[in-house]
Computed example of a mutant assay.
Amino acid sequence: MNLHNHYLQKSFQSKSVLKIITGINNINVNKVLKIAKAAELSKATYLDVAANVNLVKTLKVLCRLPICISSINPVDMYNCVIAGADLVEIGNYDFFCNKGIYLTVKQIINLSIEVKYLIRDIDICVTIPHYISLAEQVYLAQQLEFIGVNVIQTEGFSKCYEREYINSNTSILNSSNSFIPSLLSTYFISKSVKIPVIAASGCNNIFASLANVYGAHGVGFGSSLQKQNNINSIIKYINQAHKSLNSSMNSESLICLDKSIYPILRNKEINILYN
């Protein structure tokens, strides 16, 4: 593990990363600042915000936490880095899949190479899309590590992803359990690469500890924070996540969840991943 940002390096090494997602399309400065202030007071690790230059500049003045911008546009990423962004994340594939476009493994690799060339010594996180097979997810993570990506993020099923990837008869894959597929990806990817992995999509503050058990170095919170009404409730929510992330889980939890998620995998994928 080797991150350019020393503050982030320390947090990832301790596997205690709490990434606070303010919203990929949220450029309302007042709303973002409310979440940012709560995240800072509760000692979250860093903020993930929209790739908006004015927003980045404002946060760099008013918030001491590292700022990550999420985008699929290399030019936007470059401009935000010039404005002060501390790291960048390639993700938000919903923009494409809502139009029926699904980025391939090769396209994501090429995009990552382009971004790395543009921003040089800034840390890069890449989200592994869950619409590709689990074997492809592992392969993509390995290739991203090879080209110098610093962090991997996993995600759960999105409503816009092709339904063929979802077993409708598997009860854990309903809309309230998108964190489970993210944990599944985290489990196998973390065993295949040496760079840190963040689990996101549907994570809540109570079950954050599961991420550590499955090999994650931290978790990302986004939609669950939107339900909090004020700064105090956001702070309380994040503090509970700290406690959960630092708590220990026994091995029985791992075995139990492993068995429950096997039906999601195609038999062929199980053989590839375990052999």
Rank of each mutant, 00 (worst) to 15 (best):
L62F: 03
Y102L: 08
L65W: 01
V115L: 04
K37I: 14
A200Q: 04
S158Q: 15
Y262I: 15
M249I: 10
I27V: 13
S247V: 06
M1R: 14
L245H: 05
V138I: 15
M249H: 03
I27L: 01
N229K: 11
I101C: 08
L210F: 07
K43L: 09
M249F: 08
Y237T: 04
E162H: 13
K116M: 07
Y262G: 02
S260E: 11
Y7W: 03
N28L: 12
R266N: 11
H6S: 11
N98D: 07
A50S: 15
N174A: 02
D123H: 04
T186A: 06
A241S: 12
P181Q: 13
E252L: 13
L265C: 03
Q107G: 03
T186I: 02
F157M: 12
I35A: 05
Y139I: 09
Y161P: 04
L59K: 03
Y165K: 15
G215N: 06
N169I: 09
N79Q: 13
I166V: 15
I264D: 01
G23C: 12
L134G: 07
L173F: 12
N205I: 00
I24P: 00
I24R: 01
E155D: 08
T45K: 04
G215R: 01
Y131D: 13
Y139A: 10
I67V: 15
N204C: 05
H130V: 15
Q228Y: 02
N177S: 13
N205H: 11
T104F: 02
Y78N: 13
V213L: 09
T22M: 10
N212Q: 09
Y262L: 14
L118V: 12
R266W: 02
S42E: 05
Q240P: 00
Q153D: 06
L118M: 14
C256S: 15
N169V: 04
N205R: 07
S251L: 12
L62G: 00
V88N: 09
A38M: 11
V213T: 14
I82C: 09
K191M: 13
H242A: 07
E89D: 15
I27M: 04
K10M: 05
V219R: 08
Q13P: 00
G215W: 02
R120F: 07
Y214F: 15
Q240Y: 06
N92G: 02
G220F: 01
A36Y: 00
Y78T: 05
F188L: 10
N98Q: 06
I20P: 01
N98C: 07
L62V: 06
L103Y: 05
Y262P: 00
V29P: 00
L225A: 05
M1N: 07
I90S: 02
I147Q: 09
N92F: 04
E164K: 14
N110A: 10
V88P: 04
S209V: 05
V193S: 03
C68W: 00
A135M: 06
Q137S: 14
K191E: 12
L103G: 02
K268Y: 06
Q143P: 00
T170S: 12
S133W: 01
S248F: 06
I101A: 02
V197F: 01
C203V: 15
L3C: 09
Y78A: 09
K99L: 14
N52L: 04
